[in-house]
Amino acid sequence: MKTKFGFDIHDNRQIDLDLEDTRFADEVAVVVKSWKACMKCGACVGTCPVGKGVLNLTGINYQPALTTCLMCGKCLLVCPRGINTRHLILEVMNKYREYGKAV
């Protein structure tokens, strides 16, 4: 910055879907096809005993909170679309490891 005016220029919170990279999510869907049927009802997050919003299905990606999953399977019981959420969590973590990042 050349000149200080006493205020900053902000980037807005807009998500640019044109730049969205869905490769990770697509690869997960090859193994757990049913996750695409998610209609984002939030039952899985609501019932999770960890209470950290472990699963955020608005966009499948690795999230640090996943490591706190107890693998209890409660989310599996409540999903109205019958998504195998336990399998999904494991697969997201596996895929993340494959991408060469420590979980």
Binding site: F5, G6, F7, D8, I9, H10, D11, N12
Partner: peptide, 14 residues
């Protein structure tokens, strides 16, 4: 407000 002017200029930039 000087401290809020960033909101203003960000829209002009958009």
């Amino acid at each position: 407000l000087q401290s809020s002017r960033g909101y203003s200029i960000s829209h002009s930039r958009t």
